[in-house]
């Protein structure tokens, strides 16, 4: 039996009528097109689907949408303020802390929550907070650097690129001139 669920997602009030047991992850991706939240395992053991639910890192693949009723959700799409990135997003760019990037949104959200709670975490605290997140490219070292950097310690990596100025090349074969 479908139920009506209301959520506040990235500052916007949303509602959906759906099966109460449907994973929050599916609702975010399929109903709201917020595909930045990733499916990694469906068993709550890789962290790719992490969102902030009332500020707390939450595994959306094992959270029923009904459990998020009337709650506030932040996904990766809601972190930047317009064109201004969140400091943790900036730090991930500075540290070059992504390879394939599939785990990146979940990593960033958990790091944001950690730094809100502990602005200057020790390495051990970072590792404890992040241990539920898997990166298979195994970019753990640079992710750790990024979080230290966001906390105000450590140095980024001198490098070029990453914020390409061109948006798209579109070639079409169905346009007549």
């Amino acid at each position: 039996m479908d139920v009506a669920v209301t959520l506040r997602v990235n500052g916007v009030a949303r509602s959906v009528t759906t099966d109460p047991d449907r994973p929050l992850l599916d609702v975010l991706r399929e109903e709201f097109q917020l595909t930045g939240t990733k499916h990694g395992c469906g068993e709550g053991r890789c962290g790719a689907c992490t969102v902030l639910l009332d500020g707390h890192p939450t595994l959306s693949c094992v959270t029923a949408v009904s459990a998020a009723h009337d709650k506030t959700i932040t996904t990766i799409e809601g972190l930047a303020e317009g064109e201004t990135l969140h400091p943790v997003q900036e730090a991930f760019l500075e540290a070059g802390a992504m390879q394939c990037g599939y785990c990146t949104p979940g990593m960033i959200l958990s790091a944001v929550a950690l730094l809100r709670e502990k602005p200057a975490p020790t390495d051990d605290e970072i590792v404890t907070a992040m241990n539920g997140h898997i990166c298979r490219c195994n970019g753990y070292v640079k992710i750790l650097s990024a979080i230290r950097l966001a906390a105000g310690g450590g140095e980024g990596e001198a490098r070029l690129g990453g914020r390409g100025s061109c948006r798209a090349v579109i070639r079409t074969s169905n346009i007549e001139h």
């Binding site: 595909t35 799409e77 991930f92 070059g96 992504m98 990146t104 490098r159 690129g161 990453g162």
Partner: peptide
């Protein structure tokens, strides 16, 4: 020979990239 970040890295940290 220079360190270059992935050109679309910004889309990975904002969730804009579509896998």
């Amino acid at each position: 020979g220079s360190p270059v970040l992935r050109p679309n890295a910004i889309d990975l940290v904002t969730g804009a990239h579509r896998f």
